[in-house]
Design a protein around this nucleic acid. Structure first.
Lengths: 241, 241
DNA sequence: ACCTGAACACCGTTCAAGT
DNA sequence: ACCTGAACACCGTTCAAGT
């Protein structure tokens, strides 16, 4: 009888045990965590909130991750994969390095709250190794010897990673709306006492025009200019030998 | 009678109200917060722990700060002041900029947990303006025009700030001992598959030798090399006019 | 003016009990 | 194997009550 069956399905289940259709998975949990963070900020990532989002008990998640920190590390893997997956080197080694740096910045800005959460937790996995190989190959193409390739690899990658996560952090702060608006600090610089800070006062109007993107581009250009200069010297000295 | 007085003093005070000798202050609270963080990590900064440290109720602190966040901002002011106070410019503009960058790094490494906590909360106050004035003055001495002074100011300061706080973050992570030891990731790079990452494999042995300090120095040198190159061009073109 | 203690609305994690 | 519900040991913040 359908009536009987319907009544059976509708009657409250016993207070413990497992409902039929929930069935969590690592992927589902990470997706829910990502959505939760992007919608309500890093502070909203809570086992209880996550459970509610998934329609499950807040402790059910602990069957798939060892704890909250393990979930954060899972988000880190996703972010770095987003940078490296589908990337193809450019025409010149400079193009390659510039494009990769921009992709890292873009990914961090697309998910600023996640970027802040995971910036310092990058577990050395496949995605990261693939990115590193691309960078080192570009420096080899520039004509640098192995030791310099290693030095400049660290200089370039650490700078891009540090700046991108730094920028994401301020973006995430603004998003959480606990702090003042974007242009506030530029206004403060314009108002800073010209008597006490005379050199600063001269350039303050220009400072207001420079955003994070221009700064990122400037840093990248400066670093690659210097690397190119040293590479040319290395090539020249190896030829003269 | 002394007996009576002694008995009076020893008898338990009524359960509410204010004991005679506590008397908190912003300075005392910040000092206790700093000590607590440096001893037991950022996670230990708790109103209840802070109250215990000060021998006071955990809510007493809220009479001097609007909340926990306000305490963190107070710590930020202290850190930036430590960088700028007592700094004197060097012989050349390059010396000045290099020394200031190193001071920032040193301060962040001396208090890594605090640096991480406050890195993105720098409220634009006197200490920061003083530092900015020194940097802009150095770039002026290099021979750059106002707009370039502004651009390179942002490039240099943002890089130093981002890298120093990034490095402090990993130092703080290691300190909290939730993660693996210092050399772990270098070992992983040495073990990365040479077939999948051939270019990386060649330089992996060199990578193991490069620490954060060398990387910081490399970044500073590269940036200042590039700035110097452009400054020389600017001076030359202004002379030819 | 400044501090206390109780209360409120939250956390992450553990674990026996269920299916 | 996987989920639940209760419990435990914590949080930050508010507020009436005290001195």
């Amino acid at each position: 009888m359908t009536d009987h069956d319907a009544a059976d399905a509708a009657k409250p289940a016993s207070r413990r045990g497992r409902p039929p259709s929930t069935s969590l998975s690592r992927a589902k949990i990470l997706e829910a965590a990502r959505a939760l963070i992007e919608r309500e900020g890093a502070g909203a990532l809570t086992l209880r909130r996550l459970g509610a989002e998934l329609g499950a008990n807040h402790t059910a998640v602990l069957r798939h991750f060892t704890g909250k920190d393990d979930i954060v590390l899972g988000l880190a893997e996703q972010l770095i994969a987003e940078v490296v997956d589908g990337f193809t080197p450019g025409e010149t080694w400079r193009d390659t390095l510039t494009a990769l740096a921009r992709r890292l910045r873009t990914a961090c800005l697309a998910h600023p709250t996640i970027a802040v959460l995971v910036a310092h937790r990058v577990s050395r996995r496949d995605s990261e190794f693939r990115g590193a190989d691309v960078v080192v190959a570009a420096l080899q193409e520039a004509g640098l010897e192995p030791r310099d390739r290693a030095r400049y690899y660290r200089a370039l990658v650490d700078t891009a990673l540090a700046f991108a996560s730094f920028e994401a952090a301020t973006a995430a702060l603004r998003k959480s709306a606990e702090t003042e608006d974007e242009a506030a600090w530029q206004r403060e610089y314009l108002l800073a006492s010209p008597e006490k800070y005379p050199h600063l006062a001269v350039v303050a109007p220009y400072l207001a025009d420079i955003d994070d993107e221009e700064t990122f581009e400037t840093i990248t250009e400066l670093l690659l200019d210097a690397v190119e200069l040293r590479a040319r010297r290395a090539v020249a000295s190896s030829r003269s030998r």
